[in-house]
Design a protein around this nucleic acid. Structure first.
Lengths: 114, 114
DNA sequence: GCTATATTTCTATATTTATGGAAATATAGA
DNA sequence: TCTATATTTCCATAAATATAGAAATATAGC
């Protein structure tokens, strides 16, 4: 991850409609949702949604796959992961004085097991 | 955290100069850096830097404090934390199929102890 | 109060971005 | 091939954002 691609990714979700779309996809899981069902769920006109999905795809934050006449969009979790790691990289220069404490599902899972 | 404030925060770092400034502050720790030293370190004209710092402050991503003639800017780790939590909230609808795995310094610390 | 230093505000220009209707382009079943 | 459905592209307009020089505003030491 470098500055430019992080900016592209951040810009892709620095917009109300797109952030809503992205979070919907994050919650939808790897199967994702079709463009039409996103449009319906979030009340976004098709052409506008298409524009936003293109922005998200272009940034690499969402993946898409065709299935019959439908195109399914899904969150790219690896990209999200890389972005968050980039933002917090070398946080506090290695000191632990107030740093981020993110616990997402994989970590919750790991801790539940141990 | 809601959609609007997340967008404000994301927009504040969805710009090359500001992302660089923010990451510099994240790495600088709670003491932060003076406006002048940021300008010098990143080769950004004062007026431009001032504009960007205002954006970051307004979004709540950085704090500032006056110390003699200097103004020190520092990362707001709580705000960063909230943002990352918002982005990954209810990730994969509770399933663990490819989710984010962020481990920042507090977690590293906790794991090093245990 | 004067001077030097630190930072911000003002200003104008250039650039990028968001919106949604209408038309165009796929895809697949009959 | 015809038709219905799904999605994207085209387009024009409106709005927001980035840039940096010059001027203005703090702050502190003498």
């Amino acid at each position: 991850m470098d500055n430019k691609s992080a900016v592209t990714i951040l810009a892709s979700i620095a917009q109300e409609a797109r952030l809503e779309i992205f979070r919907t996809l994050v919650q939808a899981g790897i199967t994702g949702l079709s463009a039409g069902s996103i449009a319906e769920k979030l009340c976004i006109p098709n052409s506008t949604l298409s524009f936003h999905l293109k922005e998200l795809s272009h940034a690499g934050l969402v993946n898409s796959r065709q299935e019959s006449r439908f195109i399914y969009y899904s969150a790219n979790y690896e990209a999200m992961n890389s972005l968050l790691a980039y933002l917090t990289k070398n946080c506090c220069a290695g000191q632990q004085d107030g740093c981020v404490d993110i616990t997402t599902c994989e970590i919750q899972e790991r801790e539940a097991i141990s």
